[in-house]
Design a binder for these strands. Structure first.
Lengths: 305, 305
DNA sequence: CGAAGGCTGTCAACATTTTGTCTATGAATC
DNA sequence: GATTCATAGACAAAATGTTGACAGCCTTCG
C-alpha cells in the first residue's frame, strides 16, 4: 500500500467541493479524516476523495450534511444510487456557466482548459446532464459559430478532439450484464462526425445496454455484418453533417434491406433533413437524449417479452 | 553497466524538468541520488532519468513533490498508472501476449474486451512501452489484415475507436508547466487517420510538452493560424493513409510557406512515400516513437535552456 | 406570529510551509 | 576563453492551516 495522498486542492477539484467546505465538514462533523503530512497538511486518498464526491451528491439532493456525515461510505453509495431521481432539480446556473466557460476555452484553443472544465462539470452534474445540457449545446454552438465565421476549423477540431475523448470514456465503462441488450452504434457512409454517435453510445451504456461502437462512416454491409456477429438487438445511426448528401437515402435503404426486421434508431442534428428516407425504412427518429432513452427502453420492452 | 551516466543537461532534457528543479529535488528531498564523477559532477543513469520522468508526471497530476519524493520507483510507476484510472491487478503479461489478446478481441468485435486488455497493459507496461510495443504494432497488423481481407472495416473501426479513446486520455491529462515548449499536432488535409497524430501528441505530453492537438485533416491556413495563436515551438504531422495522394505535397508546401522558420516533425506509416516533399520543406521524418522523442528533444535543446 | 437559536456555506486575516526560480561564485570541461 | 556544472543562499509566489466571524435559511419555542 502506497502511503501517498493528494493535497486538498486536488481533493477539491475532483470532488467538486471548495476547500473551505471540505475543511468545515472535517472540523464540524468529522465527515472525513484525511491523513496528514509531517507538517499538518491534509492528504486525501482516492477513497476519501470518492467519499467527498458521495457526500456532495447526497447534500445536493437535499440531505443535510449534519445528518449524513457520519454514515459509512457504503451507505453513502446506496444513497447516491437511490437518489438519482431528484437530479432534474440540479442547479440551473451550473450548466450555463459551464457552457460559457467551455466556449471561452475553445476560442482560446485551450484544449487542456476545456478538458478541465468538462471534468469539473462531470463531477457536478453527472454524465447525463453534462451531455444533455453542456456538450450537446456546445457542439451545436460551435457548429453555428463556424458557419458564421466566428470560429475557425481549428477551433472546431480542438473542441471535437477533447469531447471525443471524454465521450469515449463513457462507452463501455461498466461491464454490461450478460443478458443485456446489444446496440450497434455508427454513422452512415459519408457522415464523418462521430460525436452524435458517441452520445448515443454513452446514453445506451448508461441505460445498461451492451454497446458495439463502430465509429463514423461505416458501409451498409459492414453494419449488417457486425450486427449479425454481435447478435445485436438494435442499430443506432447518427446524422449530423452533411445535411444534403444525395447518396445517404440510398445507404439507409441498403442498411434496411440487409437488416429487414431490426429496430433502427436515428438521431443527430440533420436527421430531419432525411426524414423521408428515415420513415421509409421505419427508423425511430430522436431529436434529444431523452428521446433516445425512450426509444431504447421501447426496444428493450419488446425484446423482453 | 556500459554507460557511465549522463550529465544533468541530458537528464533535464529527457525528463522535461529544468536543471534547477532537478538539483532542488535532490537537495531538498533526496528524490534522486545520481552517481558522481571524480569531480563531483552528477551522472544520471537511464533508470534515474526514468525516475525523474515519473516524478514529473506525478507532480503534474497534483501530487506534491515533498510527499512523493521518497517513494520507490515502483510505487511511482503505480502512481503514474492509477492516475489514468486503472485499478486492476493483472498478471504481468508480456507485450506479445497483449498484442495477441488484443487482436483476438478485435476479431470478436469485442471493444470492451480490447479496452480491458489495453488497460491491463497500461498497468504493467506504462504508457511508452504500451504505445510502442502494443498499440503501434496492433494498428499496423489490423491494417495489414484488412488489406489481406482477413479483417473487415468494422473490425478496424471498432479497434480504432477504443484506441482513439485510450490515446486521447494520454494527451494533456495534466496541465503542463508554464514554460513548457508547445507542440501543435495534426494531420495534413486528406489524411483522415488520427491515431498516428495522437501517438505523437501523447509522446510529446509525456516528454513535458504542452500539446495543442487539432485532430485529423486540417487545412494549411488553419494549421498556421493555430500555430501563431498558441505561439507554438514546433509542428508535428502524421501521414498514414492514403500513401499516394497527389495533392499532399502541395499541402505540405503550403504549410511550410506559412510557417517559414518553424521546426516540422513528420511521421507515420506512409511518411516515406512523400519523402521528396518532406525533405523539400525541411521536415524531420520519424519512423518510430524513439525518433519522435529525439526530434522533440532536439527542438527543445535549440529553444530552451 | 415573531424571536431565538442551530445549521450551513462562505469569507477574511494571518502564520507557515512548499516549491520553482534566480543569483553569485568557483571549479571543471571542452 | 567559452561553456557547463556545483554549491549555497535568497526570493517570491503559491498553497495550506487555523481561527473567528458573518449571513442566509430553517426549525423551534415563547
Amino acid at each position: 500500500m502506497v502511503n501517498h495522498g493528494f493535497p486538498i486542492a486536488i481533493a477539491a477539484r475532483r470532488s467538486g467541493l471548495s476547500q473551505h467546505v471540505i475543511r468545515a465538514w472535517e472540523k464540524r462533523y468529522g465527515a472525513i479524516q484525511p491523513g496528514r503530512s509531517g507538517t499538518k497538511r491534509r492528504l486525501y486518498s482516492d477513497d476519501e476523495i470518492e467519499r467527498l464526491q458521495l457526500l456532495r451528491r447526497a447534500t445536493q439532493s437535499g440531505h443535510s450534511i449534519g445528518n449524513i456525515a457520519s454514515l459509512s461510505t457504503d451507505d453513502l453509495r446506496v444513497l447516491a444510487v437511490t437518489d438519482t431521481g431528484t437530479r432534474d432539480s440540479a442547479p440551473p446556473d451550473t450548466a450555463d456557466s459551464l457552457r460559457e466557460a467551455s466556449l471561452e476555452a475553445i476560442e482560446r484553443l485551450d484544449g487542456a482548459g476545456l478538458e478541465h472544465i468538462l471534468q469539473t462539470g462531470l463531477a457536478t452534474l453527472g454524465r447525463g446532464p453534462l451531455m444533455q445540457r453542456v456538450i450537446v449545446p456546445i457542439i451545436a454552438e460551435v457548429g453555428d459559430k463556424w458557419e458564421q465565421g466566428i470560429l475557425r476549423v481549428a477551433h472546431e477540431h480542438c473542441a471535437t478532439s477533447v469531447i471525443r475523448t471524454l465521450l469515449g470514456n463513457f462507452v463501455h465503462a461498466h461491464s454490461a450484464t450478460s443478458n443485456a441488450p446489444v446496440l450497434v452504434v455508427t454513422t452512415p457512409p459519408g457522415q464523418l462526425h462521430e460525436l452524435g454517435a458517441l452520445i448515443a453510445a454513452a446514453t445506451a451504456t448508461d441505460r445498461g445496454w451492451k454497446v458495439l461502437y463502430l465509429g463514423p462512416s461505416l458501409p451498409a454491409e459492414e453494419v449488417a455484418g457486425a450486427f449479425a456477429v454481435s447478435k445485436a438487438d438494435a442499430l443506432a445511426l447518427s446524422i449530423i453533417y452533411p445535411a444534403d448528401d444525395p447518396a445517404l437515402p440510398g445507404h439507409l435503404r441498403s442498411i434496411r434491406k440487409l437488416l429487414p426486421n431490426s429496430p433502427i434508431i436515428a438521431g443527430g442534428r440533420s436527421a430531419h433533413a432525411y426524414s423521408a428516407a428515415l420513415s421509409e425504412i421505419g427508423a425511430t427518429v430522436c431529436g434529444s437524449i431523452p428521446e433516445i432513452v425512450r426509444a431504447l427502453d421501447a426496444v428493450r420492452a419488446t425484446r423482453l417479452q
